[in-house]
Amino acid sequence: MDWERFAQQMASMARDLLAQDSVDATLARIAASATELVEGCDAAGILVVHDSKVETLTPTHQLVIDNDQLQQRLGEGPCFDAARSSQGERVFRIADLTNEHQRWPAYAPQAQALGVGSMMGFLLFTEDQDHGALNLYSRKPGAFTEASEMADWLLASHAAVAFSSARTHAQMEHALATRHVIGEAMGILMGARHLTEHEAFGVLRRYSQENNIKLREVARRICAEGSLS
Rank of each mutant, 00 (worst) to 15 (best):
A19L: 08
T58C: 11
L57I: 12
L18I: 03
P78L: 12
V181C: 12
E36T: 10
L97A: 10
S157A: 06
L176F: 13
H131N: 14
T178S: 04
V23F: 04
N212S: 13
A177M: 13
E217A: 12
E89A: 13
L195P: 05
A82V: 11
D152E: 09
H180S: 05
S85D: 15
K140R: 14
T58F: 00
A106W: 07
L176D: 11
E199H: 09
Q69P: 04
F122V: 07
E36H: 04
L57R: 15
S138L: 07
S118V: 06
C79S: 15
A159Q: 03
M1S: 15
V23T: 09
V91R: 14
S52V: 00
R179N: 13
D16K: 09
A156F: 05
L97F: 15
R139T: 15
Q69A: 03
D51F: 00
H61S: 11
S164P: 07
G121Y: 03
S208R: 04
A28P: 01
G183F: 07
C79H: 02
K140C: 10
G132M: 12
A82K: 03
A43D: 11
A106Y: 12
V91C: 06
V161K: 05
M190E: 14
H180Y: 05
S227W: 00
L27H: 00
G187S: 12
S229H: 15
A192H: 11
I188F: 02
E173S: 04
A192W: 00
T35K: 03
E100A: 09
D51I: 02
R221C: 13
L63T: 06
Q171C: 02
C223D: 04
H174F: 09
